[in-house]
Simulated assay, not measured.
Amino acid sequence: MQKHPLIEQLIEAHLDFLEQEFSHTATLQNEFLNFYQWFRKQSLQALWSFEQLNALLQKQILATPASHSLIEQITEHLRFALIHPINESTAIAEVIPVSTVDKIAQYVAGKSDHRQRLIKTVVNSPAFSAMISQLIQHAIQDYLNNSVMAKRVPGVSQFMKMGKSVLESVTDSNLEQTIGHYLQKNILKLSQMSEHVLNQHFDNDKLYHFQANLWHKIKDLPLSRLKNYIEVADLSDTVGLGHEIWDHMRQTEYLKQQLHDGIYTWYTRHQAHSFDVLLRDLNIDEALIQDELQQLLTPIIQKMVSSEYLRTRARVYLEKFYYAESTQQILKTHA
Rank of each mutant, 00 (worst) to 15 (best):
Y143W: 12
W246N: 02
R280I: 01
K206W: 03
L56G: 00
Q60L: 04
F32C: 06
T121K: 15
V305C: 08
Q9S: 13
S49N: 07
E286K: 10
N213R: 10
V239K: 00
A233I: 10
N199W: 02
L296R: 15
K320F: 06
R313E: 15
A26H: 12
K164L: 09
Y107H: 14
V101L: 07
F22D: 01
D261E: 10
Q137I: 10
Q9F: 07
A272T: 14
A272H: 14
Q73P: 03
H14K: 08
Q158H: 12
L118E: 08
I71R: 01
M149C: 01
S326V: 15
Q37E: 12
E76S: 13
E244M: 11
F275I: 03
M162L: 11
Q45E: 15
E244G: 04
A63D: 13
K120N: 12
T171G: 10
S89E: 11
M1W: 07
A127P: 02
D113M: 11
I86E: 12
L144D: 00
N87R: 14
E21R: 15
I71K: 06
L57H: 07
R315G: 01
H138R: 14
L226H: 03
I140E: 03
Y267F: 14
I11G: 00
S23G: 07
L278V: 02
G242A: 09
H68F: 08
V156G: 01
I289L: 11
E12L: 11
D142Q: 13
Q290I: 04
S43I: 02
L183M: 02
P5D: 12
K120M: 04
P5S: 14
R152P: 02
E319M: 07
L175W: 03
L296C: 04
H114Q: 14
T90L: 09
S236N: 08
S326F: 08
Y309K: 11
N54E: 12
D102R: 12
G242Y: 03
L221V: 05
H68C: 04
A26E: 14
E8R: 09
Q251H: 10
L259V: 13
A324I: 03
L28C: 05
H209G: 01
E176Q: 13
K41C: 04
E51T: 13
Q294P: 00
H270N: 13
I119G: 00
S173T: 08
D172M: 09
S191E: 08
H138E: 15
K185W: 04
F128V: 02
V98Y: 09
F50E: 07
S326C: 05
V166D: 00
T238E: 01
V122W: 07
T327R: 02
S23T: 04
Q211K: 03
L28D: 02
H243V: 08
E12K: 08
P97W: 06
Y317A: 06
I61L: 15
E51N: 12
Q302I: 08
Y267W: 15
N30P: 01
I263T: 05
Q177M: 11
E308P: 00
L241R: 14
S236E: 12
T252V: 12
I74R: 06
H77S: 10
F32S: 10
T265P: 03
M162T: 09
M160R: 07
K103Q: 15
E286I: 03
Q184E: 15
L310S: 03
G242H: 00
